[in-house]
């Protein structure tokens, strides 16, 4: 899977124009706008009572009951130090299904679903960022907006998220 994505990234870098690559769900973290592959999204729900997990990193808020499955919740705002981690009725949890695992991420809001053509996507410039550029697939441009396209699968599977036992990696 990651290999496929690798191929996709090189294609973006090569700026192959033409067909629609993918549909992206866009969401906000602080003032920045992000996008991720819509196919990885299972559902979107509100933020409700969460059971804390002992000795977990601060950005792992705990676990919730999603219709009988125990699902960990990660606050992306804390993880990426973007925006204020406040929880109100507008706080949104995106439930993801990546490589067979279900998890939720807390974001400031979900805006829309957009399709991006190849020529709307730019390769990631090299710069220091809170998100390792390794996890950024590219930058998307829609009119005046700029979307940071995250490779959510790679990010969630990474060791610094601590979601998966090291042995699995």
């Amino acid at each position: 899977m990651s290999q496929e994505q690798g191929v996709a990234t090189t294609e973006i870098a090569g700026n192959i124009t033409g067909q629609t690559l993918n549909e992206f769900l866009t969401f906000q973290l602080g003032s920045e706008e992000y996008g991720m592959d819509i196919l990885k999204v299972q559902e979107i729900r509100g933020y409700d009572s969460i059971t804390q997990i002992a000795n977990a990193p601060e950005f792992i808020k705990g676990v919730v009951n999603l219709r009988g499955i125990i699902v960990p919740i990660i606050d992306m705002r804390i993880k990426f130090k973007l925006g204020n981690a406040e929880y109100d009725q507008f706080t949104v949890v995106i439930i993801l299904n990546v490589s067979g695992r279900v998890m939720g991420i807390v974001v400031d809001g979900v805006s829309d679903v957009i399709s991006l053509d190849m020529d709307q996507m730019r390769a990631t410039p090299e710069f220091g960022s809170v998100i390792d550029t390794e996890y950024i697939m590219g930058l998307g441009t829609v009119e005046e907006r700029m979307l940071i396209l995250i490779d959510i699968e790679k990010l969630m599977g990474s060791t610094d998220m601590g979601l998966i036992d090291q042995v699995v990696n």
Binding site: T51, A54, N55, A56, I70, R101
Partner: peptide, 21 residues
């Protein structure tokens, strides 16, 4: 562990009557 990892001191989870974990 099916969606998270092993947690020290915890063997599993359950859902209580009020839907909480």
């Amino acid at each position: 562990e099916s969606n998270y990892r092993r947690v020290q001191g915890v063997s599993g989870a359950t859902i209580m009557g009020d839907g909480k974990v």
